[in-house]
Design a protein around this nucleic acid. Structure first.
Lengths: 207, 207
DNA sequence: CAATAAATTAGCATATAGGAAATATTTCCC
DNA sequence: GGGAAATATTTCCTATATGCTAATTTATTG
């Protein structure tokens, strides 16, 4: 590869990028009730298993109180539920049979100064991957701010244009349409469009 | 949408996969501090972003109090963290600094009668995702055999051509370049090229 | 409808979380 | 090392979650 490393801005551990799942206004209460009932438990029984009072459970389910974190843990333990499951949207308890189609350009936009993200498949709860398309602005180099760094692994495919992928510990790499990269997202990374035009890439992030 | 559904094998409802994680003795406090610091935020700043008092944050981080669920939500919102991440184990030991570049057309070929797979990023061990590009032969309809079905989730992006994605429990969907689909791979699925030409798609599978 | 079970609510006591300000600790510069 | 500023922790007070017991309401069921 031939990309020459330009003058990089100094590193700074920075905000983990904007690809965070939006914290929906999830209703823990509903969710809990759903789960409890699906287990065929009465409040009484659930109370025994979790060590929480019937009344407390009731109030939690009816969103009259905001349970303590320890209470949530007791719930998770007692009812054998995976915590992330509590945060998934109410919808189907079924894991099978889920699918979400996103037509071209119909994703959820999420613009930043340098990038223009389009989140794909946003409304699917507890996915293992978060896919999105990103337009990297031409000359975004100037804006090159900080490394992006977050949990998980990332797969990147260049759809259009030419760009350079900078990654901590490595030399930057020039990439053109069709090239792809797989890397650990804990490693600082950033993209810069090399050409006059914007570049288009697909990202998939997995926790 | 015009694809007619061919003679499909009989359905089978699959178990929702036992994706239960045991509730570890997670230390929310440590976890939180880790995150906050990795964002380069002081308690003060974090306080502003989350709407919680410095002192409260301090106590939470030091495990002196068990935050209210609403507090946890504020945290998640303010610091842009995905709630399940709070419950994730400390952090995958290392793996930092791994990356693999695959130039266009340089992946590992893997042809079958209907598809022509090109595996990307093959030599990276224990990845969370498996990405590959696939050429779907035109008129592959004839070969339509059985559902493909496996563990995990799948993300699909159409790069070229037109095709139909058949999935169990749903009507088939016509897709063109730029369209994407996210679905549970336990659900039977199959692709058929609708046009004269081959279609090109990108898949990413996550266990 | 009656009888029973389950869920919600009420009232009160207690434990504890949350906010504001004081105090302690660390960091940094001279 | 000695401030001074920044950051973190602790204190104190108020707000609220939790547990009990019991009463009331709302399903279930025969």
């Amino acid at each position: 590869m031939s990309a020459e490393q330009p003058d990089m801005p100094e590193l700074k551990i920075e905000s983990g990028s904007g690809l965070q799942a939006n914290v929906e206004p999830l209703q823990l209460g509903k969710r809990l009730r759903e789960i409890r009932q699906s287990l065929g438990l009465t409040l009484e029984e659930a109370g025994k298993k979790t060590g929480l009072a019937r009344s407390t459970l009731s109030k939690i389910e009816n969103e009259q109180i905001s349970p303590t974190f320890t209470a949530v843990q007791k719930l998770a333990n007692g009812l054998q539920i995976d915590i992330p499951q509590l945060f998934a949207k109410p919808r189907s308890t079924m894991a099978s049979g889920r699918r979400v189609l996103t037509k071209s350009g119909q994703g959820t936009p999420h613009p930043t100064s340098t990038y223009e993200h389009e989140l794909l498949s946003t409304d699917l709860a507890r996915k293992k991957m978060v896919p999105f398309k990103t337009r990297v602005r031409a000359r975004s180099f100037d804006d090159f701010g900080d490394w992006v760094r977050h949990e998980g692994e990332e797969f990147l495919l260049v759809l259009e244009g030419e760009l350079a992928l900078y990654t901590e510990f490595y030399e930057p790499v020039a990439m053109v349409a069709g090239d792809s990269m797989y890397y650990d997202a804990n490693m600082g990374h950033a993209l810069v469009s090399l050409s006059e035009k914007d570049a288009l890439v697909l990202w998939v992030v997995a926790r």
